[in-house]
Design a binder for these strands. Structure first.
Lengths: 123, 123
DNA sequence: TCTATATTTCGTTATGTGGCGAAATAACGT
DNA sequence: ACGTTATTTCGCCACATAACGAAATATAGA
């Protein structure tokens, strides 16, 4: 029951559902999720940790960056079923679509932002 | 998003999951659910109302009694999918099995209790 | 080594939620 | 009409949770 409850509780928050929607089909860095959700880094980090504990997302650290992706085949069946359920229902969702749009912009702009911050260039 | 969230929030409570498990395959009266869950009537009534608002259960009033059953084919697809997910995972669940056992006892005893209360007999 | 950056942890605060009992409501039986 | 019973609504309290900023941690680069 604890596993199932961990999953349903993880899914019972709008911002966590949005994060799952963003991860559909691609791995993302925490900072990119932060950008789209528009929440404080600490808040998003906590959200991703809750999703991870429920085994709904996998995470990986590469240097300073934390990457997240949807749970894959070696995740527990409950988690995969839950993902199938929510992702299917997010497809027609207005907020999820808007997030996808904004994610596109973030994926395009992020290099520029990196450039500005790290190299002081004028791109 | 509101509908989906209503569903995931409704599922994010252990006692509501237990109630759904009890309803598998049969319609139950509120008082029977109260008996198995071991919670105050007002609490269980609230739980069932939350499940109903999420369209996960149907309800019907007959005289003084309120009956609940799992959402059927004319419920929204999201609700039916969600039910499929949780009921499937409750099947192997220890608590859910124990609840089923206790439900059997309640279904057997309830008439006796009714008898004692309503007719002062000694059955 | 020192600094800057990405993330996490911690402490605090505001809000949400589950629990109960008491009171209100509705419907049955006398 | 009246009392009884099943349920719901309400008010309250305890606890959980989401949000933030500040501080701690970890790592890359100068």
């Amino acid at each position: 029951m604890r596993d199932l409850l961990a999953i349903t509780k993880a899914l019972a928050d709008e911002n966590r559902l949005r994060a799952l929607g963003l991860l559909r089909g691609r791995e993302l860095c925490l900072c990119q999720i932060i950008e789209v959700l528009g929440l404080a880094p600490s808040t998003v980090s906590k959200h991703m940790s809750i999703l991870h504990q429920a085994r709904l997302v996998e995470s990986r650290k590469e240097g300073r960056w934390a990457y997240f992706r949807l749970a894959d085949d070696d995740a527990p069946q409950e988690a995969r079923q839950a993902l199938g359920f929510v992702l299917g229902n997010l497809k027609q969702n207005k907020q999820a679509k808007a997030d996808q749009q904004q994610l596109k912009a973030v994926l395009k702009m992020e290099p520029e932002e990196l450039c500005r911050k790290q190299a002081n260039c004028q791109c």
